[in-house]
């Protein structure tokens, strides 16, 4: 813990990153502890195996350390780390499923979001129904749309950051978001209506 004291809260990611590039182990440690939780949360969307996610993060940082002389010194650290972890995990997962003889599209592409509905915030039954409906619809979105929604609404990332993390163009991010939201709203309305009608008849 002592090493972290060398980095005041004022040290921004960029400064730490440059120290890290220069081979400073304390900067390395700081980077890793500052980003670990978020990376872990993100990584867990690709695999439920927590040990595997931890190993991937460890590997990610070892790779970065190893390659630090070839890394850019003016990068946005957070999206860069997330993008790198994403790539690394995709590769690891696809070779893992290849080894296990599973078909790729089955395993490679999962992005799982789990929600819980906190009822304490809900005062009407109709709101509860709507929330549950939304939860279900979110779960049915294609994985890339789910990932965009997650990064945008639950990690509060900007369009450019998301585009970097998922290595797609900013335009693609916008498109994915638009399609996803449209989908959520459309079905929501339709299904909500059915729900309502059924209730009227019961």
């Amino acid at each position: 813990m002592k090493s972290q004291s060398n980095f005041s809260e004022a040290s921004d990611d960029k400064t730490v990153w440059q120290l890290f590039l220069a081979g400073n182990v304390e900067a390395f440690e700081y980077l890793m502890s500052a980003h670990f939780r978020r990376l872990f949360q993100y990584g867990s969307k690709f695999s439920k195996d927590q040990e595997f996610v931890k190993d991937c993060i460890q590997d990610l940082f070892l790779i970065l350390w190893e390659k630090r002389e070839n890394l850019g010194n003016d990068i946005a650290v957070k999206p860069y780390l997330m993008a790198s972890l994403r790539r690394l995990m995709h590769r690891a997962i696809s070779s893992k499923s290849w080894m296990a003889g599973e078909s790729l599209d089955e395993k490679e592409g999962s992005f799982e979001l789990e929600f819980s509905v906190e009822q304490e915030y809900i005062d009407h039954e109709s709101t509860l129904a709507r929330t549950r409906q939304l939860e279900k619809l979110l779960g049915e979105l294609p994985k890339r749309q789910k990932e965009v929604i997650y990064l945008k609404y639950f990690q509060e990332m900007s369009r450019d950051q998301i585009s970097e993390i998922m290595s797609v163009s900013p335009q693609t991010v916008s498109n994915l978001l638009q399609i996803a939201i449209k989908q959520l709203k459309k079905h929501w309305k339709a299904e909500f209506l059915t729900f309502f009608v059924i209730h009227l008849f019961i």
Binding site: F36, R37, E114, F115, T127, T131, E135
Partner: peptide
């Protein structure tokens, strides 16, 4: 209400667990 009640379940990981990976 919907925004507040829809909670994303993030996996739990404790500080000591994180520490352990970092030290390793």
């Amino acid at each position: 209400s919907i925004v507040l009640s829809m909670r994303l379940n993030e996996p739990e990981i404790s500080e000591p667990e994180i520490r352990e990976v970092i030290n390793r």
